[in-house]
Design a protein around this nucleic acid. Structure first.
Lengths: 228, 228
DNA sequence: CGCTCCATTGATGCCAGTCAAGAAATGTGG
DNA sequence: CCACATTTCTTGACTGGCATCAATGGAGCG
């Protein structure tokens, strides 16, 4: 089916495993298995027990919650090279969110045992695991800050600017939305309608140009300093 | 000044250290120092570098953010026996929030070095550290869920119910708010005015009785199932 | 070509924020 | 211990932004 030889190579360039010796990587790889996901397929439900964590090889996965009234809230979007579900491994609690593939995807499941084993034998690995969790925590605090203190329009602008990432400044910079607009809207904690209207306002103001999932930022500096 | 003999005893009954040997505890204690804080005193600012983490011995500390417009958002309230700042230790980033004492308090600062040392030598300790971070992460997800999917009134009810904690059910149960109402309101992501009005509504509905920081829950089950 | 999914746009309503004033509680100094 | 100052809390009137509801427009796909 899939080629198991490639797994160690893939693992070796992840931040979490990159300093490990080849045989340690090999050990981890033996506890890992590839999983193909069709678009829309649910990887785990909220409440499911946790048997390990996941790394996205290609495709895109969302972590989300559903309210009693059936409203969905997207907590996080996970792309290639990113991992999720590590935190739940270290508690005896089930998943607090559910995971669903947004596109046809390939993910790697890494069993709990090999990680726990790695921790016991390799303090360096342990520190990386801690760093990984810390970064996630940091990101969640940013999420809380964003939802609590920034207006919907500011949140949209922030999103556009962080999709930039590498490219720091410039004119007519091109970015691409990483998911459907309703998914992104949910992640920004606004309705799709509001998202659409904000994009329209920014377009009318000459700050961006939208064409489907492609957004052209006319002037990064001006967008960054834009105040409603 | 303060009695250093007490520190090991205090450490020993924290979840993080409770299974450690006495001499390991002793080693941690040597890397710790007590800090007295006056009400209103700022322990660290957002952006400060991190040199360790903190445990509250008595008193109460808030972790908060300030928006560019000067609006404050309380991210977390920390009480006796609880710790904060662990996550930042494992990244080379500064504090993403600031910490301020809400009452005269005594906190313990535990230096980064002794923790890193503990991780290298004790896998069990390492696992506890991971568990601790995981629990914080879990709590933050709950925060996001609460802000995103629950109405202000529901959030107030949730707060009252979780202050209960031990006492699961019953009539005329008494709880006490752990901080000033404006602080709690900020933590619930509502204005003090809205908080006041919601408490009033719940009072008028006969669900609770408020007297200063003391709240009497008339019927826990009814409050829990209350739908706006 | 028709179906489904996604995005946009308009009209409307409501909840919570804002502003402002007053009451109550807390703290302070004489 | 009282009078005063300051902070905290409550209440009212008003406003506005975002959600909601509803209908239409496109894009992709079998």
């Amino acid at each position: 089916m899939t080629n198991p030889v490639k797994i160690p190579a893939f693992l070796a360039h992840l931040p979490l495993f990159c300093e490990m010796s080849p045989d340690e990587i090999e050990r981890i790889a033996r506890g890992a298995r590839e999983l193909g996901l069709a678009r829309g397929e649910v990887l785990f439900q909220r409440g499911d027990p946790c048997t390990g964590f996941y790394v996205v090889m290609h495709g895109r996965v969302k972590l989300a919650l559903t309210s009693p009234q059936g409203i969905e809230k997207v907590v996080e979007l996970i792309g290639p090279g990113q991992s999720f579900g590590e935190a739940v491994m270290f508690m005896d609690k089930p998943y607090p969110v559910y995971a669903q593939a947004l596109t046809d995807s390939m993910v790697l499941h890494i069993g709990k045992q090999v990680i726990v084993g790695g921790i016991d034998s390799d303090p360096n690995f342990c520190r990386k695991m801690l760093a990984g969790l810390s970064i996630r925590l940091h990101r969640l605090i940013q999420t809380v800050e964003s939802i609590s203190l920034r207006s919907p329009a500011q949140r949209v602008i922030d999103l556009l600017l962080q999709e930039l990432d590498g490219t720091k400044e410039g004119l007519d910079v091109h970015v691409s939305l990483s998911a459907n607009k309703n998914v992104i809207a949910s992640n920004l904690n606004i309705t799709p309608e509001t998202f659409s209207r904000i994009l329209r306002n920014l377009s009318d103001a000459g700050l961006i140009a939208v064409e489907g999932k492609d957004v052209c930022i006319r002037d990064v500096a001006r967008l960054r300093s834009y105040d409603e």
